[in-house]
Amino acid sequence: MSWLAPALWLARKDLRLEMKTRDVVASVGLFVLLVVVTASFAFPTGGAGREGVAAGVL
């Protein structure tokens, strides 16, 4: 598994960079918030359509 050690070094470096800059956390966090807000308006919260939509969301 000669790829494992370099992969771990890369992951370590990316995590360290992320801890410093918070670039990905900020952009992904905003994206998640956007999806949740859009979904909460787009999907029915009650009634007969709820089960039908659930399958599609999953």
């Binding site: 050690a5 070094w9 890369l10 370590r12 470096k13 360290r16």
Partner: peptide, 9 residues
């Protein structure tokens, strides 16, 4: 950190 990363690679 830069040097240690490359030493690891």
């Amino acid at each position: 950190e830069n040097l240690r990363f490359h030493a690891g690679l």
